[in-house]
């Protein structure tokens, strides 16, 4: 009960701050939309090619936008000694980590949804026949990005070259997730008559389970460091 209350308090505080500042969500949404436009200019007006590349572009846009949100997730805590204060509250370290993770997950999910809708219009993508498959892929993919992203954001909170370090550490670790997300999304958008997305979705599930468990086990050490 205590754990859930702390987790909810941290999420509520972060979302309230975001609602007031509208800094993170606005910037990552505009950044995401801008990249879609840039990609479409770079690739050209060929709709068939845009459709073919859409799953890869979608996940790249989400990944790049997510880095902006993830980078800021522990900034407010570190600036005014709030992280030390949270530690002094004797709050469960896992509750702090999960609270931050949930907020980041929500931001990534919002960006993903908006970017997909924009791509459907700009790249002439068809509405998938089995949208629940796509929803599941998004949830698992975004959870993986948010999990590792929150972990690395916490790891580099006190380092000086924070903005450079985050993508350098995060992107190589996310390559398996990116591959699984792109292939699964491709099959899901095509309707997936032969259930080819399934092994990729299973891979996403395994990836999330492993990294969420590992991050929860080590988050305490990072917070105390």
């Amino acid at each position: 009960m205590n754990f859930i209350r702390c987790l909810a308090a941290i999420c509520h505080k972060d979302l309230l701050s975001e609602l007031r500042k509208r800094e993170t969500l606005n910037s990552i949404l505009f950044f995401g939309i801008l990249i879609i436009f840039l990609f479409s200019f770079a690739i050209g007006p060929e709709t068939a090619l845009l459709k073919k590349l859409a799953p890869g572009l979608l996940w790249l846009v989400v990944l790049f936008s997510a880095v902006l949100a993830l980078d800021r997730s522990f900034q407010a805590e570190a600036e005014e000694g709030c992280l030390d204060r949270l530690i002094l509250y004797s709050v469960s370290h896992r509750a702090i980590f999960l609270g931050k993770l949930f907020t980041n997950f929500l931001f990534v999910l919002i960006v993903q949804t908006v970017v997909l809708l924009m791509m459907m219009v700009l790249y002439d993508l068809d509405v998938p026949k089995e949208p629940w498959n796509l929803v599941l892929i998004f949830l698992l993919g975004d959870l993986g990005i948010a999990t590792l992203g929150t972990f690395y954001a916490l790891l580099i909170t006190k380092t000086r070259a924070r903005q450079v370090m985050l993508p350098l550490l995060l992107f190589p670790m996310l390559i398996p997730l990116l591959l699984a997300c792109v292939f699964a999304t491709q099959y899901a958008l095509e309707g997936d008559p032969f259930l080819q997305a399934r092994p990729w979705i299973e891979m996403l599930f395994v990836f999330d389970s492993i990294f969420l468990s590992a991050c929860l086990l080590t988050a305490g050490l990072l917070l105390e460091a």
Binding site: A76, D84, Y89
Partner: peptide
């Protein structure tokens, strides 16, 4: 930590709240 209160140089307050 449950029994200690601390007032340091950094106050641990959230500016947006």
């Amino acid at each position: 930590r449950n029994q200690v209160e601390w007032l340091g140089h950094e106050l641990g307050l959230y500016k947006t709240l």
